[in-house]
Simulated assay, not measured.
Amino acid sequence: MYDIDYTEEALDDLQYFRKHEQNIIVDGIDEQLRYEPLVETRNRKPMRANTIAEWELRIEAYRVLYTVGSQVRIVEIQRIGEKRGNAFFFRGRKTDL
């Protein structure tokens, strides 16, 4: 089992969403990343090289960018946002990866 750790930036991202959306995101993170965060599925995939994270998790319209420390079994949530087309939006602002 992996521990889930949120960066300060990810916590700020999470606060941007309404409470109902926050519950969907946090529940999805716990369900999808607690046991096999490095197994590629239709909702989890490795990302192309970028400066934010190694993996992307899709939870409905939301995207969770994360890295995994295999040695210490910690999933670190880097950012939480939305994806529109090929663009990522964090706290309502478009961000290039």
Rank of each mutant, 00 (worst) to 15 (best):
R48A: 14
V72Q: 11
T41H: 09
V68D: 04
L14S: 05
E82P: 00
G81K: 01
D27R: 15
E60Y: 14
A49P: 00
R58A: 10
R42L: 10
I24H: 04
T41N: 05
L38S: 02
T7M: 06
P46V: 13
R91M: 12
E31H: 05
G81E: 02
I25C: 06
L57R: 08
Y66N: 09
V68L: 05
R34S: 15
S70L: 03
R84H: 08
T51R: 15
D96A: 08
L14Y: 03
Y66K: 12
K94V: 03
I25D: 04
G85Y: 08
E8N: 11
E36M: 11
R79E: 14
I4A: 03
T7V: 03
D30F: 09
P37S: 12
R42K: 12
L65I: 08
D12E: 15
E40P: 00
N43M: 06
Y2K: 06
K19R: 15
K83S: 03
Y62E: 00
L38A: 03
T67E: 03
Y66L: 07
V72M: 06
E21K: 14
M47R: 14
I77A: 10
V75P: 05
N23M: 10
T7Y: 01
T95F: 01
K83M: 09
T67P: 00
E60S: 13
D12K: 12
A87H: 07
R48M: 12
I25E: 03
T41R: 09
N23W: 07
Y2P: 01
H20G: 07
E9D: 09
E36I: 07
R93H: 09
Q22E: 13
T7I: 04
K83C: 01
K94H: 05
A10H: 05
V72N: 11
W55K: 11
G92F: 02
E82G: 01
V39D: 14
Q71V: 09
P46E: 13
I52H: 08
I25W: 10
E76C: 04
R58G: 00
M47P: 04
Y66E: 11
A10V: 08
Q22P: 02
Q22Y: 07
F88C: 06
R91T: 01
L33W: 13
F90K: 07
I4F: 06
P46K: 15
L33Q: 11
S70C: 01
R42I: 09
G85N: 10
V68Y: 01
A49H: 10
N23L: 13
F89W: 01
G85T: 08
Q78L: 09
F17Y: 13
N86M: 02
I80W: 02
L14C: 05
F17K: 06
T95D: 00
R91H: 00
F17G: 02
D27V: 01
I74S: 05
M47G: 06
D5R: 14
L11T: 11
S70V: 09
Y2W: 02
G81A: 06
T67R: 11
N23D: 10
Y62K: 01
R84C: 02
E60K: 15
A87T: 12
L65R: 06
V72L: 06
R42N: 14
E40M: 12
D3E: 12
P46D: 11
Y2R: 07
R44P: 01
F17R: 06
A61V: 06
V64A: 12
S70A: 09
Y66M: 09
E31D: 12
R73L: 08
W55Q: 12
G81L: 04
S70H: 02
L11W: 07
V75D: 05
L14F: 00
A53V: 10
